[in-house]
């Protein structure tokens, strides 16, 4: 009887699943992290390749962001700034970056839109994704107004219809959304880039993760190898397609590495 029970447990729960799999939690944010994409998105594919090189096994499960932030016992992936407000981590390993930009529909305007000062935004109704607005009060005091949408596609449809004047979105997400919605006339949308909006995407290892420091060391080494071999660049280019990744990608990645190494060493 004992043998049968052992066999059933052995089949259901192989030892390696318990011992080696590092559980990360993400929220659905395509094309960076998505349960509905091959390799779970661009960063999922980077993590997969890093794990392979490091000889580690990682698994990503997807949950709503608020639940992830509230959970102080888990390993997270994403932009650390969302999590550091409430949680500390044993290690934070930046693996990619992203930038944001303003967009407008050119046909709705006789001339190009230029934005020289923050106050210039007062003239426009700005479309953003629901939940991304930081400190609404501060914007309202400056007379800047937003219209929120639940989906990226809604933002760009509203932009084309003239229901909003500007859309603020991650450049890669905007590019893919416009390509999907308006492939034949993407050029009708203009982008006002925001080069200093660069933000990190990172693996965040919880202080309760067994061997967190060792795992972080292995992942950092694997990331360096991945970049060195050129495979990292190929993964990035696959997702960016004909839209160029930010030119200073690796400078920014190094900058965020310095920041999180400092935090870790404190």
């Amino acid at each position: 009887m004992k043998k049968i029970i052992s066999l059933i447990f052995g089949l259901l729960f192989p030892l390696s699943c318990f011992a080696d799999v590092i559980q990360f939690e993400a929220n659905e944010s395509p094309p960076y992290w998505s349960n509905n994409m091959p390799h779970k998105g661009m960063c999922g594919e980077i993590l997969e390749a890093m794990s392979e090189l490091a000889g580690l096994q990682a698994n990503i499960t997807f949950k709503p962001l608020e639940r992830l932030i509230e959970d102080s016992e888990n390993n997270d992936v994403g932009n650390p700034d969302f999590y550091l407000q409430q949680n500390d981590f044993a290690s934070i390993i930046p693996i990619a970056i992203y930038q944001s930009a303003f967009y407008y529909y050119k046909s709705n305007y006789l001339t190009d839109i230029t934005l020289r000062r923050l106050s210039d935004l007062k003239h426009y109704k700005i479309g953003i994704l629901k939940g991304t607005l930081v400190n609404r009060l501060s914007f309202e005091q400056r007379g800047i107004n937003f219209e929120t949408s639940y989906k990226q596609e809604s933002i760009f449809k509203k932009l084309k219809l003239g229901r909003i004047d500007l859309a603020l979105e991650i450049d890669l997400v905007a590019h893919q959304t416009l390509h999907k919605l308006y492939a034949s006339h993407e050029r009708d949308f203009a982008m006002v880039s925001l080069p200093n909006s660069t933000a990190p995407i990172a693996l965040m290892l919880n202080e309760n993760q067994a061997n967190a420091k060792e795992i972080a060391t292995q992942y950092r080494k694997a990331l360096a190898e991945l970049i060195q071999s050129g495979r990292y660049q190929k993964i990035i280019e696959k997702y960016y397609g004909h839209f160029s990744p930010p030119a200073d990608w690796f400078d920014n990645l190094n900058r965020f590495n310095r920041l999180y190494n400092f935090i870790e060493s404190e």
Partner: peptide, 21 residues
Amino acid sequence: LSFLLCLCIYSAPSFATGPRV
């Protein structure tokens, strides 16, 4: 304009990899 989407509090953010306005 140079934008730093800085690190304040987030009113129920929905995307962990998203533009933080």
